[in-house]
Design a protein around this nucleic acid. Structure first.
Lengths: 370, 370
DNA sequence: AATCGCTATGGTAACGTTCCCAAAATATCA
DNA sequence: TGATATTTTGGGAACGTTACCATAGCGATT
């Protein structure tokens, strides 16, 4: 049996302690319980808990041991309400089940953990309504800030967000006034194109995605690259898909129908379409890379297991998450440098590319002057 | 220009309103600001906000329009502190970047969204220390409950968690006193074995994982199945890996070395090892499924893109997340039914299995009596 | 010995809600 | 019309912290 000693307090403190003690059977201990146990005021307990220098060594010891004895754990809610900071951050991505975004999430998560923050993760499914609803939830939860891959075209939702925010992904370009992190698509496309050129593929066919910003940019870089290398961009074969395996397969089939044997190399705008292309090539009775070389873009894990393994331009997914989180933390800490960070892509060489033994580069010059 | 009407209040309310009004320039409006704007008390605002029946229709309208006008948003922190419920749930999984767990997370997320809750997601990296730290973070954030894939063997961490918790994954078996959701491995293994038998593969070689509970169970089911089908389990070839592609490849190579041509079929304990086996088969100059059939276990997305596509026993990943969340919500709502749910696996037929044209089933009976 | 500074402590008011109780306003009935 | 239900409202007191201010100690300085 446990009996409590009589305390000598006569004022308001008595009530408070009486209440808390009577309840303390099945309730998590609060700072007040600790104060009682250690025989100090709650202010002192708070000081011990927050490593304040304004507290005696002996007192701190006593408080801390009471904390251990009662198994006290700070109520983060109360702390947040009072201090105005929750230590919670938001992450809104299209789909956590998508390997790319999962990787981004992991990067963000690790970096958040390093600064002692927790991550609230939402999937928007590319739906502006859901995005808006998730942002609202984040605001109501009073997160300190958020990383968002914006799907809504209207600046409103994000502009009104009213909290530190870092954008990730390609669509971030539409909001130049906000900090953002993305992969350097231009560098990545150039990297892929150069690698192809090195293997003798100067005029790869293109498997593009649906007509969004990402596609425009992809095309622009290809265009510039061609011009810079004396290739007439208008002679490039192109087909359009929707960034899925199936659409990639269909697009590749159309491409083969149009181009026939001339199609020796394909640069797909993402890995899923590239994998679809791989299926199409096999279906058409051709072999990759012997007959057709395929280069992907993204670096999804599945690319490692296809046959042949998919050579691809890998986006720095985890780096994007991590860097985004770094920027966010900085923004919250008040080092309000507005920044746009582009992380370089890297070439992931596997087996889907072969050297083109065919004719040398069909140059613009040759065509023009021939 | 906006001027505020003079209010007739003389008491404490005046101070409060004065303070809040002077601050309200760049501060999020609170329930008190709304009360002022609508000319009611904060109690009334709270009632309007919570759809209480104890409020007049006209008043509710007035309050709600003030809410819209000021762009008020409930402070979830304060609400939680007062009501004791946060509407936040935790999810602790080994690795969000792992496709299986990402899928689980997605299932949990969707289901959480349906009940208006937010999800705090953590990756434990199979590290008990991290798991413990994440559970602590969850408790401090005062989540209403959590879904955990337990990695720590000690019941302590979870027993002490003190909040509604639902376990997911195979390791949940170690904590029979807690609700849990998992895939029905026994059913899945049997499903795979039956399918193999149907194709004539009565004695598949086994690619096992590292010696943990999952492996023991896997083996037990195979053993029982063999006995039930008159096959001597001890005649089954087995190799061990670590659930990775590389270890699967190595194990398969060892298997081929040991078994030679006799190895016509392999049942891998997970898809990654199966994919590794696929590589090994190709490396050894053999063809899958013509020479060797390979059956995986898991249903990871990458299996769809290998060549041939990996036939596998797919775990209901998303379903596990969703069902786990349902159980958790129930547990929180107070319908404290303790439950252990096993979700059935499904066969995902792709191309890595061929019919065995070889000899009929080598039966125990035949061996024993021959 | 009185004063000054400094550290260590206690008390109290926030933070923004919800919950309970009392009181006011209105409706209902005899 | 007066008394009694019933609905609608207001006023605090929580929830568990932190921030600020005041003050009690106490050694050092004059």
């Amino acid at each position: 049996m446990v009996t409590f000693p009589k305390y000598q307090w006569e004022d308001a403190g008595v009530q408070a302690s009486a209440v808390s003690m009577s309840k303390s059977r099945n309730r998590q201990p609060t700072i007040i319980d600790i104060a009682e146990a250690a025989g100090v005021s709650k202010s002192t307990v708070a000081r011990a808990l927050s490593d304040s220098p304004h507290i005696g060594e002996k007192t701190r010891e006593r408080v801390l041991s009471a904390v251990r004895a009662l198994g006290y754990e700070r109520n983060h809610l109360a702390q947040s309400l009072r201090s105005g900071r929750t230590g919670m951050l938001g992450l809104v991505i299209p789909d956590i089940a998508n390997p790319f975004w999962a990787e981004v999430a992991r990067g963000a998560q690790d970096e958040a953990a390093r600064s002692g923050a927790s991550l609230l993760v939402f999937s928007s499914d590319w739906d502006p309504a859901r995005e808006a609803s998730h942002l609202r939830a984040l605001r109501q939860a009073r997160v300190d800030g958020a990383i968002v891959n914006p799907v809504a075209d209207n600046v409103d939702g994000l502009g009104r967000f009213g909290l530190p925010v870092v954008l990730i992904g390609s669509s971030a370009e539409r909001f130049p006034e906000l900090s953002s992190v993305g992969s350097d698509i231009a560098q990545g496309v150039a990297l892929g194109l150069n690698h192809l050129a090195m293997l003798g593929h100067h005029r790869p066919a293109l498997l593009l995605g649906s007509p969004r910003l990402a596609r425009v940019r992809f095309l622009r870089v290809v265009h510039d690259h061609c011009i810079a290398h004396d290739v007439d961009p208008s002679t490039l074969l192109m087909e359009e898909g929707e960034y899925t395996v199936e659409s990639g397969r269909a697009a590749m089939l159309r491409l083969l129908e149009r181009g026939g044997d001339a199609v020796r190399c394909v640069f797909a705008a993402n890995d899923l379409m590239a994998l679809g292309a791989l299926l199409a090539v096999r279906e058409a009775g051709l072999k990759c890379p012997d007959d057709v070389s395929i280069l992907g873009f993204d670096g999804i894990p599945a690319g490692a297991f296809s046959d042949p393994g998919l050579t691809t331009v890998a986006k720095p997914a985890r780096g994007i998450g991590a860097e985004g989180m770094k920027l966010l933390v900085e923004a919250i800490e008040g080092d309000v440098e507005h920044r746009r960070v582009l992380l370089p892509c890297a070439l992931e060489v596997r087996g889907s590319l072969a050297e083109d033994a065919g004719a040398g580069p069909a140059r613009l010059a040759a065509v023009g002057r021939g």
